[in-house]
Design a protein around this nucleic acid. Structure first.
Lengths: 116, 116
DNA sequence: CAGGCATATACTGATATAGGTATATAGCCT
DNA sequence: AGGCTATATACCTATATCAGTATATGCCTG
């Protein structure tokens, strides 16, 4: 599974993560709150743990799961590259810059054709 | 495919998106820069476009692709819920809060067992 | 220590998706 | 028109992954 991105691609896993924001939860609590079969919860938690999104501690027969920050930081860092794109409503400006800065200029051309 | 999260789960697609940060690119440019077979590029671009990550305009026989902000915002918004978790090195504090606030208290118990 | 609760794992089947190869479509240029 | 370039799509195969069901493990309580 590896990638943090692949891990959060799964809706149920995102739901589990959101649930853990308020506080740590046991498997059974997650099971009940998300109305999800227990093995499914355990399996998703396994994936989440392997990717570092959660950690667990033992409390008698139950395991309490809570969030860990690292993978979120990783995703956030990647997303950071794109912040400039959306932070403002620079759509128009962006487009303008793209026009100024087209990687190789659209092409050596006879008459400036610009199909739009 | 639907979900923006599923779309960015694919490494090649993330690479394409990163490539488009500098400026719009044609399919052929992406193909060359990422050393990726052309049909693969086209297919990923299709997915990216359907999810709103990119848009394209026609330039003669080529298509120029550029980024669009919305799906990034969506991902960022989801991630926002978790910012408090990692923004500081509150790991210790977090843990403290969890202990104060365990959803249902770990359980009605005889002697305060706390297996750690 | 026997039964039950909480959680994890094994196994199976269905479905989706990525990669590869071939081909179709469409615009450009001579 | 004919050939070339650029891109898209169809088709196939391999692989991964999710859901579901059954079962194993471990701890707790009477």
């Amino acid at each position: 599974m590896e990638s943090a991105f692949a891990v959060i691609a799964e809706p149920n896993r995102r739901a589990i993560l959101s649930l853990l924001i308020s506080s740590q939860q046991s498997v059974g609590e997650i099971e009940r709150r998300l109305r999800m079969p227990q093995p499914a919860v355990s399996k998703h938690l396994r994936v989440l743990r392997d990717a570092g999104f959660v950690e667990s501690t033992v409390d008698a027969q139950r395991r309490l799961y809570r969030l860990r920050p690292e993978p979120f930081r990783e995703v956030d860092a990647w997303l950071g590259q794109f912040r400039r794109i959306w932070s403002a409503h620079l759509d128009a400006l962006e487009r303008h810059l793209d026009r100024l800065h087209p990687s190789p200029p659209p092409r050596k051309t006879r008459k400036p054709r610009r199909k739009r």
